[in-house]
Simulated assay, not measured.
Amino acid sequence: MAAKSKQELGVEGQRHLEETINAAFQILSSMNDELCNPVLWSTLSPGHPSAALAGAGDAPVDSSSHPSEAGGGSGGGVLDEARLRYKSAVLALRSCIAAIPSATQEAGALDSRADAVELERLEERASSLRKELENKNKHLKLLIDQLRDLITDIAMWQSPCSV
């Protein structure tokens, strides 16, 4: 990536950022699809945090029957694919951002004044991209935590009341 110009790196970085955002959106959509699927609400895997809420008289739950874990559901495979796309897009974005300083050094001999302005603009852009990615990661973590809480609440609502 070091042989690319700063402009090429900027365009590539923007493309990677868009891929990251699209993959994050796909993760959220897949999680929403799974949450909206009532078949998954009553099927708890043994390792799931809300599995402890199931009564002692309940039949054992077969984790292979859980569509998202078995890969057979609409959300499981899509969610895993979106996670992989997100991780690869973030890695590509990071490598692109890391290549910007070396691209600037290679082009530095041509016009140092113009390059200094360009470098400052690229550094500001890289900084804003890092902040945007950090904010999106925080937002994604918050939504995942909220989804986890919602699933726990749904599991509690569906558990039999012992009076």
Rank of each mutant, 00 (worst) to 15 (best):
V117M: 07
L150V: 04
V90G: 01
D149E: 15
K141S: 08
L142G: 01
V90T: 04
D149M: 11
V61T: 13
P60D: 07
D149P: 00
E118T: 14
I100L: 13
P67S: 03
T104D: 03
G108E: 15
R83L: 12
V117F: 09
Y86M: 04
L147G: 06
K141V: 01
L150S: 03
S68R: 01
A155S: 13
I97V: 09
L133R: 04
A82G: 03
L129N: 01
E132C: 08
I154D: 01
I151A: 08
D153S: 12
S74P: 00
G77V: 09
G71N: 05
G76L: 06
E124I: 11
S88K: 12
I151C: 06
D111S: 13
R130W: 15
E124F: 12
Y86P: 00
K87L: 07
A92F: 03
L140C: 01
R94D: 05
N137W: 06
G75T: 08
G75I: 00
G72E: 13
E124W: 09
D145V: 01
S95A: 09
A70R: 12
N135V: 06
E123F: 15
S74A: 14
A126T: 08
A92H: 05
L119D: 12
S64K: 15
S65A: 15
R130C: 07
